[in-house]
Simulated scan of single mutants.
Amino acid sequence: MPVKEEKSTPQGRAVHLTLQGKGGVGKSFVSAVLAQYFLDSGKTTVTCLDTDPVNQTFVNYKALNAEHVKLLEGAQINERNFDALMERLLSEDGVFIVDNGSSSFVPLSNYLIENDAFRMLREAGREVVIHTIVTGGQALLDTLSGFKSLTEQTGAGNVVVWLNEYFGPIEYEGKCFDEMRVYKENSQKVRGIVRIAKRNQDTFGRDVELMASKKLTFSEALSGPEFTIMSKQRIKTVQRDLFSQLAGLAF
Protein backbone atom coordinates (compact mmCIF):
# COMPACT_ATOMS: atom_id res chain seq x y z
CA MET A 1 0.00 0.00 0.00
CA PRO A 2 1.42 3.46 -0.87
CA VAL A 3 2.68 5.54 2.02
CA LYS A 4 0.96 8.87 2.46
CA GLU A 5 3.24 11.89 2.61
CA GLU A 6 3.36 13.72 5.92
CA LYS A 7 5.24 16.62 7.38
CA SER A 8 8.59 15.16 8.36
CA THR A 9 9.92 15.08 11.90
CA PRO A 10 13.48 14.51 13.09
CA GLN A 11 14.44 10.85 12.88
CA GLY A 12 14.33 9.12 16.23
CA ARG A 13 11.69 11.34 17.84
CA ALA A 14 8.45 9.46 17.65
CA VAL A 15 5.61 8.05 19.73
CA HIS A 16 3.97 4.80 18.64
CA LEU A 17 0.76 3.90 20.48
CA THR A 18 -0.90 0.49 20.15
CA LEU A 19 -4.62 1.00 20.69
CA GLN A 20 -7.59 -1.34 20.28
CA GLY A 21 -10.70 -1.72 22.40
CA LYS A 22 -10.90 -5.49 21.94
CA GLY A 23 -8.68 -7.65 24.13
CA GLY A 24 -6.74 -10.73 23.08
CA VAL A 25 -6.12 -9.67 19.48
CA GLY A 26 -2.33 -9.30 19.59
CA LYS A 27 -1.65 -5.74 20.80
CA SER A 28 1.36 -6.68 22.91
CA PHE A 29 2.78 -8.84 20.11
CA VAL A 30 2.49 -5.86 17.75
CA SER A 31 4.17 -3.58 20.30
CA ALA A 32 6.97 -6.11 20.73
CA VAL A 33 7.49 -6.39 16.96
CA LEU A 34 7.64 -2.60 16.68
CA ALA A 35 10.18 -2.32 19.49
CA GLN A 36 12.37 -5.00 17.92
CA TYR A 37 12.17 -3.34 14.51
CA PHE A 38 13.46 -0.02 15.86
CA LEU A 39 16.07 -1.69 18.07
CA ASP A 40 17.28 -3.69 15.09
CA SER A 41 17.89 -0.48 13.15
CA GLY A 42 20.31 0.72 15.83
CA LYS A 43 19.61 4.33 14.85
CA THR A 44 17.81 5.51 17.96
CA THR A 45 17.06 4.72 21.58
CA VAL A 46 13.82 2.81 22.18
CA THR A 47 11.69 3.15 25.32
CA CYS A 48 8.91 0.61 25.87
CA LEU A 49 5.96 1.46 28.12
CA ASP A 50 3.11 -0.83 29.19
CA THR A 51 0.01 1.05 30.33
CA ASP A 52 -2.30 -1.96 30.54
CA PRO A 53 -3.96 -1.81 34.00
CA VAL A 54 -4.96 -5.50 34.01
CA ASN A 55 -2.64 -7.66 31.91
CA GLN A 56 0.88 -6.27 31.68
CA THR A 57 1.99 -8.57 28.86
CA PHE A 58 4.46 -6.14 27.29
CA VAL A 59 6.59 -5.88 30.44
CA ASN A 60 7.10 -9.65 30.34
CA TYR A 61 9.34 -9.24 27.28
CA LYS A 62 12.40 -8.95 29.51
CA ALA A 63 14.77 -8.21 26.63
CA LEU A 64 12.79 -5.07 25.77
CA ASN A 65 13.05 -3.57 29.29
CA ALA A 66 9.47 -2.32 29.18
CA GLU A 67 8.25 -0.22 32.10
CA HIS A 68 4.77 -0.41 33.59
CA VAL A 69 3.02 2.97 33.79
CA LYS A 70 -0.11 3.10 35.93
CA LEU A 71 -2.55 5.43 34.17
CA LEU A 72 -5.85 4.24 35.64
CA GLU A 73 -7.32 4.52 39.12
CA GLY A 74 -10.39 2.33 38.92
CA ALA A 75 -12.06 3.35 35.67
CA GLN A 76 -10.64 6.87 35.65
CA ILE A 77 -7.42 8.28 34.25
CA ASN A 78 -4.93 9.28 36.94
CA GLU A 79 -4.21 12.76 35.63
CA ARG A 80 -0.97 13.17 37.57
CA ASN A 81 0.48 9.94 36.14
CA PHE A 82 -0.73 10.80 32.66
CA ASP A 83 0.84 14.26 32.92
CA ALA A 84 4.13 12.60 33.95
CA LEU A 85 3.92 10.32 30.91
CA MET A 86 3.27 13.27 28.60
CA GLU A 87 6.24 15.08 30.15
CA ARG A 88 8.47 12.19 29.14
CA LEU A 89 7.03 11.93 25.64
CA LEU A 90 7.47 15.66 25.10
CA SER A 91 10.95 16.06 26.57
CA GLU A 92 12.91 12.85 25.99
CA ASP A 93 14.48 11.86 22.69
CA GLY A 94 14.15 8.49 21.02
CA VAL A 95 11.27 6.28 19.96
CA PHE A 96 8.56 5.44 22.47
CA ILE A 97 6.44 2.29 22.07
CA VAL A 98 3.32 2.54 24.26
CA ASP A 99 1.21 -0.59 24.68
CA ASN A 100 -2.28 0.07 26.00
CA GLY A 101 -4.84 -2.40 27.40
CA SER A 102 -8.39 -2.87 26.17
CA SER A 103 -9.87 -1.93 29.55
CA SER A 104 -8.24 1.52 29.42
CA PHE A 105 -8.91 2.08 25.71
CA VAL A 106 -11.96 4.32 26.14
CA PRO A 107 -10.77 6.49 29.06
CA LEU A 108 -7.29 6.90 27.60
CA SER A 109 -8.64 7.76 24.14
CA ASN A 110 -11.01 10.31 25.65
CA TYR A 111 -8.24 11.87 27.72
CA LEU A 112 -5.91 12.13 24.73
CA ILE A 113 -8.64 13.96 22.82
CA GLU A 114 -9.72 16.25 25.67
CA ASN A 115 -6.13 17.34 26.29
CA ASP A 116 -5.29 17.66 22.59
CA ALA A 117 -2.31 15.42 23.29
CA PHE A 118 -1.66 14.41 19.69
CA ARG A 119 -1.37 18.04 18.60
CA MET A 120 0.96 18.83 21.51
CA LEU A 121 3.26 15.96 20.56
CA ARG A 122 3.34 16.91 16.89
CA GLU A 123 4.01 20.58 17.68
CA ALA A 124 6.89 19.43 19.90
CA GLY A 125 8.44 17.69 16.89
CA ARG A 126 7.27 14.18 17.72
CA GLU A 127 5.89 11.95 15.03
CA VAL A 128 2.75 10.29 16.40
CA VAL A 129 1.68 6.93 14.97
CA ILE A 130 -1.35 4.98 16.14
CA HIS A 131 -1.24 1.22 15.59
CA THR A 132 -4.48 -0.74 15.73
CA ILE A 133 -5.27 -4.38 15.07
CA VAL A 134 -8.06 -5.82 12.95
CA THR A 135 -8.41 -9.57 13.31
CA GLY A 136 -10.44 -12.30 11.65
CA GLY A 137 -12.87 -14.64 13.36
CA GLN A 138 -15.30 -13.68 16.12
CA ALA A 139 -13.49 -10.43 16.95
CA LEU A 140 -13.72 -9.04 13.41
CA LEU A 141 -16.65 -6.67 13.96
CA ASP A 142 -15.34 -5.50 17.34
CA THR A 143 -11.90 -4.70 15.93
CA LEU A 144 -13.41 -2.95 12.92
CA SER A 145 -15.40 -0.84 15.36
CA GLY A 146 -12.19 -0.01 17.23
CA PHE A 147 -10.52 0.99 13.97
CA LYS A 148 -13.47 3.26 13.10
CA SER A 149 -13.39 4.86 16.54
CA LEU A 150 -9.68 5.66 16.29
CA THR A 151 -9.86 7.13 12.80
CA GLU A 152 -12.69 9.40 13.92
CA GLN A 153 -10.50 10.71 16.74
CA THR A 154 -7.41 11.57 14.74
CA GLY A 155 -7.13 14.26 12.14
CA ALA A 156 -3.94 13.10 10.48
CA GLY A 157 -3.07 10.14 8.26
CA ASN A 158 -1.15 8.46 11.06
CA VAL A 159 -2.99 5.17 11.64
CA VAL A 160 -1.25 1.88 10.86
CA VAL A 161 -3.61 -1.09 10.61
CA TRP A 162 -2.27 -4.52 11.48
CA LEU A 163 -4.35 -7.24 9.82
CA ASN A 164 -3.99 -10.26 12.10
CA GLU A 165 -5.14 -13.34 10.20
CA TYR A 166 -4.25 -15.73 13.03
CA PHE A 167 -7.90 -16.19 14.01
CA GLY A 168 -9.18 -16.44 10.45
CA PRO A 169 -9.54 -14.51 7.20
CA ILE A 170 -10.38 -10.82 7.47
CA GLU A 171 -13.48 -10.81 5.30
CA TYR A 172 -17.00 -9.50 5.77
CA GLU A 173 -19.89 -10.05 3.36
CA GLY A 174 -17.43 -11.25 0.73
CA LYS A 175 -15.16 -8.19 1.02
CA CYS A 176 -11.58 -8.00 2.25
CA PHE A 177 -10.48 -5.13 4.49
CA ASP A 178 -9.56 -2.57 1.84
CA GLU A 179 -12.91 -3.19 0.10
CA MET A 180 -15.00 -2.61 3.24
CA ARG A 181 -16.98 0.56 3.65
CA VAL A 182 -15.39 1.32 7.04
CA TYR A 183 -11.96 1.38 5.41
CA LYS A 184 -12.99 3.35 2.33
CA GLU A 185 -14.62 6.04 4.47
CA ASN A 186 -11.48 6.40 6.60
CA SER A 187 -8.67 5.49 4.19
CA GLN A 188 -7.27 9.04 4.25
CA LYS A 189 -6.44 8.49 7.93
CA VAL A 190 -4.47 5.30 7.22
CA ARG A 191 -0.72 5.60 6.79
CA GLY A 192 -0.24 1.95 5.92
CA ILE A 193 -1.22 -1.66 6.49
CA VAL A 194 0.87 -4.47 7.98
CA ARG A 195 -0.38 -8.00 7.37
CA ILE A 196 0.30 -10.75 9.89
CA ALA A 197 -0.25 -13.56 7.43
CA LYS A 198 -2.03 -16.78 8.26
CA ARG A 199 0.50 -19.57 7.81
CA ASN A 200 0.52 -23.32 8.38
CA GLN A 201 -0.80 -23.66 11.92
CA ASP A 202 1.14 -26.86 12.64
CA THR A 203 4.50 -25.29 11.78
CA PHE A 204 4.64 -21.49 11.55
CA GLY A 205 1.66 -21.01 13.84
CA ARG A 206 3.01 -23.26 16.56
CA ASP A 207 6.49 -21.73 16.43
CA VAL A 208 5.28 -18.12 16.62
CA GLU A 209 2.73 -18.99 19.31
CA LEU A 210 5.44 -20.62 21.43
CA MET A 211 7.74 -17.64 20.95
CA ALA A 212 4.95 -15.23 21.94
CA SER A 213 3.84 -17.33 24.92
CA LYS A 214 7.40 -17.35 26.29
CA LYS A 215 7.67 -13.60 25.61
CA LEU A 216 10.82 -14.08 23.58
CA THR A 217 12.12 -11.63 21.02
CA PHE A 218 13.04 -12.84 17.55
CA SER A 219 16.73 -12.62 18.48
CA GLU A 220 16.24 -14.70 21.62
CA ALA A 221 14.27 -17.34 19.73
CA LEU A 222 16.85 -17.51 16.95
CA SER A 223 19.84 -17.76 19.29
CA GLY A 224 18.37 -19.88 22.08
CA PRO A 225 17.92 -23.64 22.53
CA GLU A 226 14.10 -23.70 22.59
CA PHE A 227 13.67 -24.08 18.82
CA THR A 228 14.96 -26.49 16.18
CA ILE A 229 16.84 -25.37 13.09
CA MET A 230 13.70 -25.52 10.93
CA SER A 231 11.62 -23.72 13.56
CA LYS A 232 14.23 -20.96 13.63
CA GLN A 233 14.05 -20.72 9.85
CA ARG A 234 10.28 -20.25 10.01
CA ILE A 235 10.60 -17.61 12.76
CA LYS A 236 13.20 -15.80 10.68
CA THR A 237 10.79 -15.83 7.74
CA VAL A 238 8.08 -14.18 9.86
CA GLN A 239 10.53 -11.60 11.19
CA ARG A 240 11.79 -10.76 7.72
CA ASP A 241 8.25 -10.37 6.40
CA LEU A 242 7.07 -8.06 9.20
CA PHE A 243 10.25 -5.95 9.26
CA SER A 244 10.08 -5.55 5.49
CA GLN A 245 6.50 -4.28 5.70
CA LEU A 246 7.45 -1.82 8.46
CA ALA A 247 10.41 -0.58 6.43
CA GLY A 248 7.96 0.22 3.64
CA LEU A 249 6.16 2.67 5.96
CA ALA A 250 9.32 4.81 6.22
CA PHE A 251 9.08 5.75 9.89
Rank of each mutant, 00 (worst) to 15 (best):
N81L: 02
L108G: 02
V160W: 01
F96A: 00
G157E: 04
S109T: 14
E152Y: 06
E127I: 04
L89D: 05
R126M: 01
M86P: 07
I133H: 09
S109K: 12
L141P: 02
T132V: 07
V161K: 09
N78T: 00
A84P: 04
L163S: 09
F118W: 12
L108E: 08
G146R: 08
L121I: 01
H131I: 03
D116L: 00
L89A: 09
V159R: 14
E92D: 07
N100F: 04
E67L: 02
G94A: 10
E87D: 11
N100G: 04
K62E: 14
R122W: 05
M86E: 15
Y61T: 03
S102W: 05
V98D: 01
G74N: 09
G74I: 13
G146I: 05
S149G: 03
L90R: 14
T143P: 09
A75N: 07
M120V: 01
F105K: 09
V159L: 12
A124Y: 04
L108M: 13
S145W: 06
E152F: 08
Y111F: 11
N60T: 08
S103D: 15
V129P: 02
S103P: 00
A66M: 00
G94Y: 08
V160D: 07
L141Y: 07
E79M: 10
G74R: 10
S145G: 12
L163W: 06
R80H: 11
L85Y: 12
R126I: 02
G125R: 09
E67A: 00
N115F: 03
T154S: 08
R119Q: 12
E114K: 15
A75V: 12
S145R: 12
T143E: 11
V159E: 04
V134P: 14
L141T: 13
E79F: 02
Q56C: 05
M86A: 06
L141C: 06
S102A: 15
G136S: 11
I97L: 06
V159N: 05
V95P: 06
N115M: 02
N78M: 01
V59I: 13
T151E: 04
V161W: 10
E152I: 06
L121D: 01
T151I: 07
L72Y: 05
G155N: 10
L71M: 02
N110D: 12
S104T: 08
D93G: 13
L141F: 12
G101M: 08
V98M: 01
G94S: 06
V106N: 10
G136V: 01
S145E: 14
Q138Y: 11
T132H: 09
V161T: 13
Q153A: 10
S103M: 07
Q76S: 08
A63L: 04
S145N: 13
I133D: 13
V159Q: 03
M120Q: 14
L163P: 02
A139R: 06
N81M: 06
V161E: 11
